[in-house]
Amino acid sequence: MHRPSFPNDRPWRRARVDNAMVAARCARVRTRSIKTETKDHLLRLALSMVDLTTLEGVDTTERVEALCRKALRPLSDRPDWPSTAAVCVYPNHVAAARRVLGPVGGPVKLASVATGFPAGQTPLATRLREVEQAVADGADEIDMVIDRGAFLAGRDADVFHEIVETKAACGAARLKVILETGELGTLDNVAAASRLAILAGADFIKTSTGKIQPAATMEVGLVMLEAIRETYLATGVQIGMKPAGGIRASKPALHWLVLVAETLGSDWMSPTWFRFGASSLVNDLLRQLVRRDEGIYPSPRRFSVD
């Protein structure tokens, strides 16, 4: 497998972002009004893009199994509604999840947060071992965290090297690189880390672990989408995007889709290239879909907790 080499001039560090105008652009996206058939379409699309996630210390096999069943059929009486894109679990639960989801190639992908999630503060060798194990247990996708400390200290080569090695350990699995933007401090850093991760081999870039606030703000999202756009226009390589953490309601989710459509275009409007890392979002999407379908506003109790 091709391993990209570290560019000594660190081109990602030249990326420049103007915060005020990023905020202005996002504010404008938030004024988009999503109505009627557009709303139906985007709610379903959003549902199909969710990485239904559970990443708790109290996770059990039973909980993960329930999550997988919900991913396959989010609302029991609506078998025709889309399944979610994936489930996302700790490495220890990959094998159990795989059993519920069925063999590789089914409608719901299996993602796992390997690499010492969420801090990433374990030796690289053990992190790589974790990745290999998760892939061996049936993971389609690996969500890794970067070493934010190394990035902020300017040890870009270390961050780059870890991504390269993790990517190699993934084999055929797709690699999502979590920047943990809430710890990067500036949008310039988000822009730089996005480009670094892409050059090092990320298939997806992802905002957050969900353990740190702020998580997936639209502002960091726009900056990351712009990095993806630049990459595609320059090289033709398509990179995926995954905001994770803090997206709990349909309205912001739909505005995310507007942002994607207006920044990257229709090629990204699919679960292959865009995901929401979320848990409670699914129920709100279902609730809005029921509202559209039945004309009544359902109680949240209609939807299972997991």
Partner: peptide, 13 residues
């Protein structure tokens, strides 16, 4: 004169 704002704004979502 544009002023720096961490994380580019109110980040309302």
């Amino acid at each position: 004169m544009s002023a720096y704002e961490p994380q580019g704004g109110a980040a309302s979502y």
